[in-house]
């Protein structure tokens, strides 16, 4: 499922997976920024890939690798806060 990651001194990061957003003009980009997009229930979730930590190992996780299972995805403000 999650793949073990080789870690150097860099701070790796992930991001959304899938189609790149199409090029938009400056004006359209400004409009887009003002909109707050939200996920729609009943629709496919956006796929992503992200580095992480699990049980003594640094890992890379891709959401779509979990197809076939129920997934609970939780965001929280920061480590050392409550969840």
């Amino acid at each position: 499922m999650a793949k073990k990651a080789n870690v150097g001194c860099a701070r790796p990061t992930g991001g959304p997976v899938g189609e790149e957003p199409t090029e938009t003009s400056q004006e359209q980009q400004t409009i887009k920024k003002e909109e707050q997009s939200m996920i729609m229930v009943g629709q496919k979730v956006p796929d992503f890939e992200a580095p992480g930590y699990q049980k003594g190992e640094f890992i890379n996780v891709k959401l779509s690798d979990y197809l076939g299972k129920w997934v609970l995805l939780c965001f929280y403000p920061g480590d050392f806060t409550f969840v």
Partner: peptide, 8 residues
């Protein structure tokens, strides 16, 4: 991030 929780 805010406290978002998604059931997939």
């Amino acid at each position: 991030e805010t406290r978002g929780r998604f059931i997939i």
